[in-house]
């Protein structure tokens, strides 16, 4: 047996988390919701892939965007989808959006002492037909909002959204109050501008942009007719309608 008495003590450790960059964003309208994310996945200064979706269709009226540690994010989405399938089998209907939000809270808090290293944004259509966005912290604290940005470039995007969606620091002309909700074309333009801006100034954002649009039942789809790169994902003819719009972002 070799003599090891003179050797220095060695320390090893395993760090179970990584930060994979990227940014997600969701904006609610009166009767629609837009949920978007870039498709770059990186580790440090290396790009692992230019197409790794961060936005996922959960039901015909709910979309979940997951940002942070990609492995945790993918596993979390998988488990949420599994719980939603069980719900369908038990209740013969889709889980409503506000119930999915509460489910996500419970699932995140269940991992309170070894959390999923992710920020979640849930978007879709509520039972009353209104557009809704729910944002979560990694351990399940959540809130319903009109808009939210999360991820690597959230500090760049969120103040822009405060200004353009909530009209913060803007005074309306007398007798013309600021709108509570914006029309779909305006929202799409703001989402695209937010991501092109974030791509310009943040190295972890870029490559591609995926925007999910959920429209409440009976709503006109006219505003999406002339949008480039739109693809319909609707499964049922008589329900809410879902679309995905794919755009290129700068790859440098």
């Amino acid at each position: 047996m070799p003599d090891t008495a003179h050797e220095q003590p060695q320390q090893r450790q395993f760090y179970p988390y990584t930060e994979n960059g990227g940014t997600i964003l969701a904006i609610a309208g009166a009767d629609f919701t837009v949920i978007a994310g870039d498709t770059r996945q990186s580790e440090g200064y290396s790009i692992q892939t230019r197409y790794a979706p961060k936005v996922f269709r959960l039901t015909e009226r709910a979309v979940l965007a997951v940002n942070g540690f990609a492995a945790d994010g993918n596993m979390f989405v998988k488990k949420v989808k599994q719980r939603l399938e069980w719900y369908r089998h038990a209740h013969a209907k889709e889980m409503p959006l506000r119930a999915i939000a509460r489910l996500i809270q419970t699932m995140l808090y269940a991992q309170r002492f070894f959390p999923y290293y992710v920020n979640n944004i849930l978007g879709g259509i509520e039972e009353d037909g209104s557009g809704a966005v729910y944002s979560f912290d990694p351990v399940g604290s959540y809130e319903r909002e009109a808009c939210r940005a999360a991820g690597a470039a959230s500090s760049l995007v969120q103040p822009f959204l405060d200004n353009q969606i909530y009209f913060k620091n803007q005074t309306p002309a007398p007798g013309t109050p600021h709108p509570t909700y914006l029309p779909l074309p305006d929202v799409l333009a703001i989402v695209i501008d937010s991501f092109t801006s974030a791509t310009e100034r943040h190295i972890e954002v870029g490559d591609g942009l995926e925007m999910y649009v959920v429209l409440a039942k009976g709503r006109s789809i006219e505003e999406l007719a002339d949008v480039a790169g739109v693809q319909e994902l609707t499964t049922r003819a008589d329900g809410d309608r879902m679309f995905v719009i794919q755009r290129e972002l700068k790859k440098d």
Binding site: A153, S155, L156, P159, F160, N163, D193, S197, E200, R201
Partner: peptide, 11 residues
């Protein structure tokens, strides 16, 4: 600065 970059790039 990071917030200023984000908003300025947009406006």
């Amino acid at each position: 600065s990071s917030k200023l970059f984000g908003v300025a790039e947009g406006l």
